[in-house]
Amino acid sequence: MVWLALLSLLGGVFCGMFVFSAEHVELLGVISEYALYILMFSVGMSIGTNKEIFSKLRSFGKIVLIIPAAITAASVLSGFLCAFLTGVSVRDSVCITSGLGWYSLTGVMLTDLSGATIGTMAFLSNLLREMISFFSIPLIAKHLNYYCAIAPAAATSEDTTLPMMIKYTSEEMTVVSVINGVLCSAAVPVLVNFFHAML
């Protein structure tokens, strides 16, 4: 799966650079939206087929809410360290790490709020967060625990990194992962606007 994902990514970059026109890429954007819907429907069916999953999810209790809260707090705090390491202002730095891996939204928002350079950096770094998450999920699930595998993925744990969660953790962890992704995604626009105004 990891190799298939890497091959798809490199193939996509190559086609985007040399093969496809702008219209093709736009069309592909529409196709990928439907692919995501089909994927979520299919994941839903997997979950529904597995009847024990709901009783197991109940046994998780409040941990389902603690995980997204911890990921969000840790990501925001890491923005202060990143500011020190890169020389980017604390405000922009915290806004970038508040993206929680949602590169398209954070890139667009910060281009608007702080200019093209910070916007591009937000786009690239959150994209990298998604990519690194994608490929680190198998390792983290194996060596730490399944909950930790959700942590790098943050807001992306409901869509792009979800297939890796399905493959390398359990079905009930997939449900935790989707809930985490929904909550983190909802937090991103609020956090970016808040820190941009407050810091």
Binding site: G12, C15, G16, H24, L28, A35, L36, L127
Partner: peptide, 10 residues
């Protein structure tokens, strides 16, 4: 999804 992400980047 990943192919499309790569294409929009490239």
């Amino acid at each position: 999804l990943i192919f499309s992400m790569g294409a929009s980047l490239g």
